[in-house]
Nucleic acid binder design. Sequence first.
DNA 1: GGAACGGCGTTATAGTATAACATACATGAC
DNA 2: GTCATGTATGTTATACTATAACGCCGTTCC
Lengths: 165, 165
Amino acid sequence: MTTARPKPRAGAPKSGHNHRACIATALAAAEKLCAARGEQLTALRRRVLELVWAGHKPVGAYQILDILRGDGRSAAPPTVYRALDFLLAQGLVHRVESLNAFIGCPHPGETHATQFLICSRCGTAVELDDAGIDKAIDGTAARMGFVIAARTVEISGTCAECRGR
Amino acid sequence: MTTARPKPRAGAPKSGHNHRACIATALAAAEKLCAARGEQLTALRRRVLELVWAGHKPVGAYQILDILRGDGRSAAPPTVYRALDFLLAQGLVHRVESLNAFIGCPHPGETHATQFLICSRCGTAVELDDAGIDKAIDGTAARMGFVIAARTVEISGTCAECRGR
DNA sequence: GGAACGGCGTTATAGTATAACATACATGAC
DNA sequence: GTCATGTATGTTATACTATAACGCCGTTCC
Ligand SMILES: [Zn+2]
Ligand SMILES: [Zn+2]
Ligand SMILES: [Zn+2]
Ligand SMILES: [Zn+2]
């Protein structure tokens, strides 16, 4: 029962937004995607995805682990890393290399470019889908005879909201 | 006594190149830069820089540590991390986030864009200085009202040489 | 039933990075 | 001269991140 609303493809989350809706949308999309692929979004995996979506800030594996333990559930590092590996493989979350942390993908199942703007003041990371940046990278890589397998584009700085203050 | 030769700003190192020259050039440039800035390129820092330049592959802090210990020198993790922190602050090395490793900068002291093409087959990382990529990122960040402080652009894939095989 | 598989529990360990305190030495003030 | 200061390094301990290896359990398929 998700409300129909346009997905922000590169919008910063409004500070006053209803984040429950973000979570609900993400979980519903994950259920749908896994069902379509014949993959099992188990209770554990679903819970980990929910925790990754706790906010719009990248979350560390051990933060997730602490919360799982708080749930009363038995959990150890492999518990959370295995769930994260699954979610990464399904494209439901991304890994933020420069923070050793994970964040939910706002448009899983769709082909998209992936860049992050990471605010070092408030911790928010916004996923961009900027084809122009990828294109610039493609061109240079091609000129070097380099075949791209994966891209990491993570820009840190100060977001508009924090700058306003 | 460095040989005068053009610095490759974005060229992959030739497989048969004289790497001793790369190291010598890098060390000479570091000496010069530190002298100009009144910073101390101590024997330890110089040695760590030399080790980072052992090849054109990013090097892990604990690899460096092992070699330092092999030197007969007393060394612990802070030994190498402090040296690396200094070299990073001086712009003599870069950190490769996606590998948790470090690589020498081929043109320290010059303002430059920094992107890496990382071959997952041979491990070589080439530093690019592509203003076009940075420009694409600048434009998008500006549109989002985001003020950039640092950029991480790391592309992994297969280099031309490995692809040829 | 039994083999094969996937998901998860559990224990141990590997790999990366920093905190905190001690020592050594150079420089400049007095 | 010696005292205070600052910087580099030594040393010990610990925190943080990630994976290896083994075992259990439930489902599916024969
Ligand atoms: Zn995404
Ligand atoms: Zn912010
Ligand atoms: Zn550089
Ligand atoms: Zn290669």
